[in-house]
Structures are given as structure tokens and as C-alpha cells.
Amino acid sequence: MANNRSMASITTAKAARSWSDLRPERRSQVPEGLWLRCPGCGQLIYRKQMEANLHVCPECGHHFRIQAGERIHQLADAGTFEAMFEDLRPKDPLAFEDLKPYAGRLKAEQDRTGRPDAVVAGVGFIKGRQAVLCSLDLGFMMGSMGSVVGETVTRSIELATERKLPLIVVSCSGGARMQESTLSLMQMAKTSAALARHDRAGGLFVSVLADPTTGGVTASFAMLGDVILAEPGALIGFAGPRVIRQTIRQELPEGFQRSEFCLKHGLIDKIVHRAELRNELARLIDYAGL
């Protein structure tokens, strides 16, 4: 896991890391190689072709999970993204220790991913329209929200409000980070309060939900978009299916909490294919007149 690659080389968008480096993709026991089996259709697909296709299966359209760097690379006009708030570093305020100490987990994740925490934020252009862009990173402790993620998202919101820029946040997260306990919980209130001000100032916020978006992230900024877009097949919910089954022993229907289910129940505005995301965002920015 901790293969001390240098920071700079990994954080570039076209890094060697790909979907299989991300943690638990369903049926992800595919050996590293030129070919991989798509968890969506079971077909053997050529990795390079899949990657060139925005990490979407060319056969069935399964959207593979992607890291934040790749996400920003896909969304922003080439060379326009300027990262911000990168000096924020996580701490271990609770001296939390489970089977491993939190401080050790952080260090290992930082070494493995080359990121200080589970978020990338900054300003960039989408089809020539300037916007504040922020993406959670599922590869870092399941994209969980601790103080650094909460602070980065809040600063991004405040920047968008101040500069009257559209705000786009791509969420993919297991929820609030347990290792910072109530401080993580308070990030939900903090980000939501910043969004309240952004909203009242007439700012646009488009929330993009990728697989999976659950827990405290869903129950705060992810569900507060003026427009909420989701990638196809993304798991979106408050309590995950496993928790629901374990807690109340309820049988869950096929496709429960997937984007299509959420669309049917009126929880999101639209499902957008990854290849269409830039177009859709640009269109929404134009409709908002920003």
C-alpha cells in the first residue's frame, strides 16, 4: 500500500493510478493488467480504451470510480485549473485509535495517494465559464469528511460567494469521518451554513453525485445543490443498504438507492453520463446567468 511515490508524480491528472487503486469496487478482484473485467457487464475490456473513454466501460457504460485528480482533469478546460487551499493538513484531535491509530492511517493514505486529505479544490473553467470546482477523493479514506474536507469545501463555497462564481462540488464519500467524531459532524453544519449564505447571495451551486455518496456528506452539502446531478448507477443515500438491512432487517428492492431509484423518487434532478457532464454544467451556468 504505502509505496512512497513522490507527491508530484502522483497528483498529476494522468497518473499511473487507475480505478483498481481505489478501494472496494464491487467484484474488483481483477488482476492488474492490460485487460480488466467490467463489473457492470462482465466483459473483458481493454484498460486503455476504458480510461480513454473517461473511465467508462465502452461496452455497457458502467462508470468506474475515479480519483479527484482525474475528475478535475475531466471537468476543467485543459490547463485552466488552479488548485487552492492545499496547505490544509489533517490533525488527530481525538488521538483516535482503533485497530490502527488515526495518525498512522493518515500518514499511510497520504503516502499512498500523494494528497493531504480526501479533497481537491480550486478555480477553473468549464467550456470557458469560470467556476469554483471541488471534488472529494474516494481513494483517501473512502472520501470521508473530517475537518480538512469540511474546511476546504467551506472555503470553496465562501470563495464562490465572494467572487460570484458558480460552485460545483463532486461528491463521492462514505460520509463523515469517524476518527474526528463530533468535529466531523460539525463540518456538516459548517458547510451547510456557508451554502445558506451562498444561496441567499444568489449564488449557483451544482452538486454532482458520484458512486457512492452516503452518510454525512449526503446529509449536508451534497443534497443542497440548486441542481443535483448524478452519474449513472451511483449509490446515493443517507444510511447505506448494509446498515438498513442490519438495523431493521428490511428487504431492499433491486436498484435501491442507485441514481435511477433516486431520480424516480424525486431526490435528484438528473442523471448525466460522464461524457455529457461538462456540457450540462456549462448549460446550467448559462441558465443561471452567471
Partner: peptide, 15 residues
């Protein structure tokens, strides 16, 4: 609310 440090050196540029 929250607990974090500020890094002194210039951080790497992602994306």
C-alpha cells in the same frame, strides 16, 4: 469548528 494544521511549504499541484 474543526481541527487542522497549515502546511508551511508549497504543496504539490494536483489535477
Amino acid at each position: 469548528l474543526g481541527s487542522f494544521d497549515l502546511a508551511k511549504q508549497e504543496a504539490p499541484v494536483p489535477g
